[in-house]
């Protein structure tokens, strides 16, 4: 019982990360609506932020902004930098994806995958 509690405390961040990741994956695969698919893709992307930032956290540490205390413990700044880049790249992906969705809607009049397949079969 004690082992279960300690493994929950030690791995909770990783488990929530995994849950968000597979939830995003599920939405991308299972749902036909393209806007919904992109929301799922965003959830998947944001789960990667947690995957990177969580291991860099040191309990009892502080943000990596230098202070005068010589004994200060700083959390790892490197994952923060990588994820700053990832957030902006994620926005670029979403903008391009939504551009495609709007264009598809202009041509087919729908953003549902099944209806688009039907219409392209008819032609």
């Amino acid at each position: 019982m004690n082992g279960l509690v300690s493994s929950i405390l030690e791995h909770y961040n990783q488990w929530v990360t995994i849950f968000l990741m597979v939830a995003g994956l599920y939405v991308v695969v299972a749902r036909g609506n393209m806007v919904k698919k992109l929301v799922g893709l965003s959830v998947f992307q944001t789960s990667v932020y947690l995957l990177y930032i969580s291991p860099g956290k040191i309990l009892g540490g502080t943000a990596p902004i230098l202070i005068d205390d010589p004994n200060a413990v700083y959390s790892n700044p490197l994952p923060h930098v990588l994820i700053l880049t990832a957030i902006v790249v994620g926005l670029a992906t979403i903008a391009l994806g939504l551009g495609l969705v709007v264009r598809i809607n202009e041509v087919y009049g729908t953003v549902e995958e099944d209806e688009i397949f039907e219409r392209s079969d008819d032609e």
Partner: peptide, 26 residues
């Protein structure tokens, strides 16, 4: 998680700009 810079970017980009883009597409 001690990442205030990332938090600011996520608040501005993730919950701000992304939402505006999604609403525009909707």
């Amino acid at each position: 998680l001690d990442a205030p810079d990332v938090a600011m970017t996520e608040a501005a980009v993730g919950s701000g700009v992304s939402t505006v883009l999604f609403l525009a597409a909707l």
